[in-house]
């Protein structure tokens, strides 16, 4: 989003016609490229969603979603992740005004919320496995663990990325390249939120429908 805002600011002042302006500045290119990558990531998730939808009832006599999903846990997970998106947004604002302390605080909050989300998710997985609902048990569980696990893996990567960015920020300050990457991170983090909302709806809410 920030990328789009910046892009507009640059263009309007300079030229009448966007498509004739010549090569875009680097931050626009980086942001746009990352958007494109995120789209491809969402396509990958849609394939996983499709497979989950096909296999959702193929429980092979094992435990079903109704028996396994704990709505309270999922509600907490959702709250944590949405909140982390909020703090991530705060961090973006701090970056735009180049405030170190606020940026670090935003990052720490985002990290903690993300980590808490991950911890809850792992606990959920552990509980299911303890009940014998392993991904090897049925096609439904294979699809469930793969879909939700992929999202969890993305969150893990995001957390590692955030730590790296904080290291870079403290070493280099608000260099252009660091700011570009932080913006990409925030795009990534919000995209994970969107995917989670879909998981929440399709897997957890629709999964407990009678």
């Amino acid at each position: 989003m920030n990328v789009a805002v910046e892009m507009d600011a640059v263009r309007r002042s300079a030229l009448l016609n966007l498509s004739e302006a010549g090569p875009a500045p680097k931050r626009v290119i980086a942001g746009f490229g990352f958007w494109t990558f995120l789209l491809s990531d969402i396509v990958m998730f849609s394939a996983l969603f499709a497979s989950y939808a096909v296999l959702a009832k193929a429980t092979a006599g094992g435990l079903t979603g109704v028996q396994l999903f704990d709505q309270r846990n999922v509600a907490m997970e959702t709250a944590l992740l949405l909140l982390s998106s909020y703090t991530c947004g705060m961090m973006s604002l701090a970056i735009n005004s180049r405030r170190y302390l606020a940026t670090f605080l935003g990052a720490v909050a985002t990290f903690l919320l993300g980590a808490a989300f991950l911890a809850l998710e792992l606990r959920e997985f552990q509980g299911m496995i303890a009940l014998g609902a392993t991904p090897q048990r049925s096609a439904f569980l294979s699809a469930f663990f793969t879909l939700v696990g992929s999202h969890g893996l993305h969150v893990t990567v995001g957390l590692a990325w955030l730590v790296l960015m904080m290291v870079q920020l403290s070493l280099r300050g608000f260099q252009d390249v660091v700011v570009r990457r932080l913006h990409c991170f925030s795009l990534f983090w919000h995209a994970l939120d969107i995917i989670w909302v879909l998981i929440f709806t399709i897997v957890y809410l629709m999964g407990v429908l009678p």
Binding site: V54, L55, K57, A58, T59, A60, G61, S138, A139
Partner: peptide, 11 residues
């Protein structure tokens, strides 16, 4: 080979 074939019949 199939304990449950619901999904298949659906799709």
């Amino acid at each position: 080979s199939m304990q449950s074939d619901d999904a298949l019949c659906r799709s």
